[in-house]
Design a protein around this nucleic acid. Structure first.
Lengths: 330, 330
DNA sequence: TTGTATGCGTTATCAT
DNA sequence: ATGATAACGCATACAA
């Protein structure tokens, strides 16, 4: 049989109200009685029932994140785990919990709605945000706390995003530093925010650093990258540096060019595990930090605090794919 | 303002008891009134408060898993995500939830104890099981439902484990099939269950298939593997096939031997992402299935059903690290 | 500073 | 087949 607050009250010869007060360290309790109660709580190993407490307080201390099985983060890549680790690092420090869930993408709105009404979580972290995301509309209507990872055009919400602009900028800057003058940038899909942000960083670096940078639009993947390179080769490949919007593209680039005997500095984006292996210089988004900050923001939001959106800086991880060229170029 | 069961009862002109009955589809309710109530529930979009329900039912429909930050699965590798994906696939199908947590390894028992007493979860999945694992003792004492991933010596609990014995067996069998006769097996650390199971599979394959297999004890990691290979090379390397207890070891082996101009079929274990990249033949544990089965077992256990432990078969993923030798050997 | 009493939204027991 | 009502364990408004 498990102890309840009533049992503790009886043992301490006080009322449940007083025990409840020390449990939530309300100040209006005499130090002596507080000590007495705490001792009994310790001696008997009493822990309050969080479900009962949640029902009363209308707060559970549990937050939620839903991974889409199709079309979004699938909870299979290292992004997901690193992100989770960041989130959990914050939450566990505060004694808070996280419900991780997955869902097929169809009736996703209904799914969110059910979870909200079931009252088990205090707030959501939203992944894979899209333009005119219906979830944002729903959560705002329900006045339910949430934090978005990434941005869209509206940004009528609190978000935590990677600083793609400066991330791309520092990559180009590094190419310049090792002596590159005419650079090829293979972008991600046109029209999606991440691509536009990275492209914008590339363009401002081009201006600031007085470089010549050609832009090609890829799709973050290998095949398209190789297509692009092939068509460039027809008119002659005369770049002394390549920057790609993803590590996958960078990998494809190196492999393809090497097959043709062309060796040129290449930088990728994301720092996926493969990149360490092939020693690819790349932009690391600091995903753990993003997760941590998102959890922190959500918790504040759920407690009625004012919260600002946040852009987390990335850092360049320098490896052989550029460093091995430093001597040649200088 | 959110609807409660009382509101629905009033709208339907019945008592809350009746509404509760249709909610939990108890059979003792007239079809017409049931329909009437269901219609109102649908029309008004009512969803019961799970916290209130949990308090009454003494069940939340939430399960828990705790990752150790130090010394265990760190929620950083692909094992963790694949496993989670399996678990969540089952749970989401049943409308159940999962709390994912991390914890520093120190007062881990206290941590489990707190969570149990807080009443928020109905059962645990235990990772990184060890000999005489204190958590097992605790959970058994508390009579709290749990399922273990892996085994130890006692096995006085329900577990879901990978079939390391047959996994190792099929690897050796494949080596034999491509013509290997004298095989080197580099084991994992002596004395831990996984190592012993894989070794046992190797040994029975040795007998069954009439092979000559030499055993060396490594530690699942690169450095030790290379040490072992170096010492073998002193007396001459005369193996025509190598099987390693991990992909990492297999990778080290290939790299090291290749550096010496030695090309020999190599098989690893785990099918980590790198292995696809380097085209390493390896044993895949089917981690997603393990996660799925564990969640299923836990749910049954938490509902008082009898549950058997389970050993999930692995499969061999054949790639170039062995297939490129098929012609030579035949 | 402490106690009393009520309610949080359900489910279960016992009537009817 | 349905209703009235007492729990579930805790937190809080109000009283003392």
């Amino acid at each position: 049989m498990n102890l309840t607050i009533k049992d503790i009250a009886d043992l301490a010869k006080v009322s449940v109200a007083t025990v409840s007060r020390v449990l939530n360290d309300s100040d209006k309790v005499k130090p002596e009685t507080k000590e007495k109660i705490l001792k009994i709580i310790r001696d008997y190993g009493y822990k309050p029932d969080k479900i009962a407490s949640s029902l009363r307080k209308k707060k559970t201390g549990i937050y939620g994140i839903i991974f889409s099985v199709k079309g979004g983060r699938v909870l299979e890549d290292t992004y997901s785990t690193k992100f989770l680790k960041g989130v959990l690092t914050f939450l566990s420090k505060k004694g808070l919990k996280l419900i991780v869930d997955i869902h097929e993408s169809q009736d996703i709105l209904e799914y969110y709605k059910n979870i909200i009404k079931s009252k088990v979580i205090d707030g959501f972290i939203l992944l894979d945000i899209r333009k005119n995301d219906k979830r944002v509309e729903l959560l705002k209507n329900e006045n339910f706390p949430f934090v978005v990872i990434g941005r869209n055009d509206e940004n009528n919400f609190v978000y935590v995003d990677s600083d793609n602009v400066s991330g791309a900028y520092i990559a180009i800057k590094h190419l310049k530093e090792i002596g590159c003058q005419k650079i090829l940038y293979i972008s991600g899909n046109e029209g999606i925010p991440v691509s536009e942000q990275r492209l914008s960083g590339v363009k401002s670096a081009e201006k600031d650093l007085k470089l010549r940078i050609d832009i090609e639009y890829g799709d973050f993947d290998e095949e398209k990258t190789i297509e692009i390179l092939k068509s460039i080769l027809k008119r002659g490949f005369n770049y002394d540096g390549v920057f790609c919007a993803s590590d996958t593209m960078a990998y494809a680039t190196i492999k393809f060019l090497r097959g043709l005997g062309i060796e040129v500095p290449v930088i990728g984006y994301d720092n996926i595990p493969l990149s360490e292996f092939i020693e690819l210089t790349t932009v690391d988004q600091n995903i753990i930090k993003i997760g941590y900050s998102a959890a922190e923001a959500l918790h504040k939001l759920a407690n009625g605090e004012e919260v600002m959106s946040l852009v987390v800086p990335s850092k360049l991880v320098k490896r052989k794919s550029t460093l091995s060229f430093t001597t040649k170029h200088i």
